[in-house]
């Protein structure tokens, strides 16, 4: 197995994408909103396809805007169903995202010829194509995901207090004047953006593994937010690298392999915590 420049690009992109997911994912896990990640990752599809069709290109801010707005749309719809129509929580999520995803898939299959996107790409992405789409010699995906990672870090640094307090004690946060709802929507926007970035590489369903897996594993060992971020990032990178080599060995989809490894890492961590860190 020879390791070439292309492999490095794919590996780096996978790592960058998984790191992007750790930041909002940690908050999702802590807020017991993991399934919102599921919902949003499915629901960005129609926005993504619409943006493809309108702008005719995979790059560009229009795409991010389209996908991010459908991410917010799903949040608003779920809240509308719960509060105004009194639909129970789980059914509201299930109803909204399956519908949006179905609409997205129909759009993809109707306009398959017009946009560079197909059903398989929607479901499990194709990170192996990353090296074929270069800007100034560097893969576009890698540039975008690194850019988003910096943006997310900036948002985390600037909004740490608000995100932290509204996550752990929304009542107290509201009492001292923090706009809990605004932080909720900011987090949803962060999830949407990471989802959009990860979408192309790993597809709609596997994004959830990236969002939830490393933070859930980190939560086994750390009860503090900074610790969760660091451990989560570590697990994300380890899983990405191991998953990549597994994919090469099996000649299988990279996103799927990384998700599988994320699951294995969680399983091993459970055992380690049980037998080594016995409380």
């Amino acid at each position: 197995m020879s390791f070439q420049v292309n492999d490095w690009w794919i590996l780096l992109t996978t790592c960058a994408v998984s790191l992007c997911c750790v930041i909002p994912g940690t908050f999702l896990v802590l807020r017991r909103m993991a399934m919102y990640g599921d919902a949003i990752s499915h629901a960005v599809l129609p926005g993504l396809v619409a943006a493809y069709l309108i702008s005719g290109t995979k790059a560009g801010p229009g795409l991010l805007a389209g996908a991010a707005s459908s991410g917010l749309l799903v949040t608003i719809l779920i809240e509308f169903l719960q509060k105004k129509v009194k639909v129970q929580h789980d059914a509201a999520i299930g109803l909204v995202y399956t519908f949006l995803f179905a609409v997205g898939v129909i759009m993809v299959s109707q306009f398959a010829g017009m946009a560079d996107i197909d059903q398989d790409c929607v479901l499990f992405g194709e990170i192996a194509f990353v090296p074929f789409d270069l800007i100034a010699g560097i893969p576009r995906q890698l540039l975008i995901s690194t850019g988003l990672l910096l943006l997310l870090l900036l948002a985390l640094w600037a909004g740490y207090r608000g995100l932290y307090l509204s996550t752990f004690d929304p009542g107290f946060a509201a009492a001292i004047g923090i706009q809990v709802i605004a932080w909720h929507y900011l987090l949803m926007a962060m999830v949407s953006l990471s989802t959009v970035i990860a979408f192309e590489s790993v597809g709609a369903v596997l994004v959830i593994a990236f969002l939830v897996g490393p933070p859930a594993t980190a939560a086994l060992f750390s009860k503090r937010l900074p610790g969760m971020f660091l451990l989560g990032s570590l697990f994300a990178i380890v899983s990405s690298v191991a998953g990549y080599f597994l994919a090469m060995a099996l000649d299988a989809n990279v996103g799927g392999c990384v998700s599988l490894v994320i699951g294995v890492v969680f399983g091993i961590s459970v055992l380690i915590r049980k037998y080594l860190f016995r409380e």
């Binding site: 993991a34 994004v207 939830v212 799927g256 392999c257 969680f266």
Partner: peptide
């Protein structure tokens, strides 16, 4: 979290 994790890991295994 457990639901999201099993969903994605099993689906990932399926895709592999």
């Amino acid at each position: 979290t457990a639901i999201a994790l099993m969903l994605s890991v099993f689906f990932g295994a399926g895709i592999v």
